[in-house]
Design a binder for these strands. Structure first.
Lengths: 141, 141
DNA sequence: GTACCTGCAAAGCTTTTGCAACTGG
DNA sequence: CCAGTTGCAAAAGCTTTGCAGGTAC
């Protein structure tokens, strides 16, 4: 049985949490680092990574996993879907309800024991939709 | 407009494609490298990466993007859903139909122009379901 | 007081890339 | 022939980690 640590609320942890809650898009560690650094100039990247990990254990935030090339985090701990821009990798929330029946649909066809699902919509964000999409003969959805 | 290269079918490319088509799970580059190396011992990892990229441009395979910590590829170019083991990161196909109406559901709620979606089920694979799941107080779905 | 946390820097892991030699069509 | 490809090795990009000094409780 994994032993739970007694976590403390340090200044760094508090600020990271606050900054992450402020934004609606879902930044990677480097962006969070930049945001937090405005208030705590001496914080280190390692601390940011460690705290994001701890905060998600505490269920204060949600670890989204890799999106694009970066691990992402979400200030909203409740489960929800996302929309990703295929061009700039921006990630936003999708404001529709969770479709739990999807899991029931797949159960008869698999020998995995299903405990959840992730749904990500893909498209062009308002910014990227403006400019012509010549090069995007997208190979990855 | 992006210029298309004239791709050649080299021995390396052929073998990579064949090996990838053989398996139902979706290996990362390192695993593919290991598989291919049995037939072409002198191939390099760089070649594997470059060919996976080329093959997905050619629509012979599908680039899945990051799953777990690795980029994954899929020998089946047709779109379909996946199931990932939360414990060992194994990835299998989910044999249910694509739900295109999901995209219509989200359109009214976003200013992205939606072009697709990815759905990934999460659970324990048959292997990992056997052993007790003590430590998995999972923070990431 | 002490378990937990921090900054720093080094290490780690996966993927990408420069280059000179090679080769498919 | 020659654009495209390969093996090798180095570089790049992001994340994790060891350590010694600090700090929340």
């Amino acid at each position: 049985m994994q032993k739970r640590k007694n976590h403390r609320m340090t200044r760094q942890r508090t600020v990271i949490l606050e900054e992450l809650k402020k934004v609606k898009t879902h930044p990677g560690a480097d962006e969070i680092y930049a945001m937090v650094r405005k208030r705590l100039p001496r914080i280190s990247l390692g601390t940011v990574y460690r705290n994001l990990e701890v905060l998600s254990e505490l269920r204060e935030i949600q670890k989204i996993g890799y999106v694009g090339t970066l691990k992402r985090f979400d200030g909203t701990p409740e489960n929800h879907y996302h929309i990703r821009c295929i061009k700039c990798d921006r990630l936003d929330d999708a404001l529709i309800e969770i479709e739990t029946n999807l899991e029931n649909k797949v159960r008869p066809y698999t020998n995995y024991s299903i405990i959840g699902h992730r749904l990500e919509f893909i498209g062009f964000c308002p910014e990227c939709a403006k400019s012509p999409q010549e090069d995007a003969y997208q190979t990855e959805l």
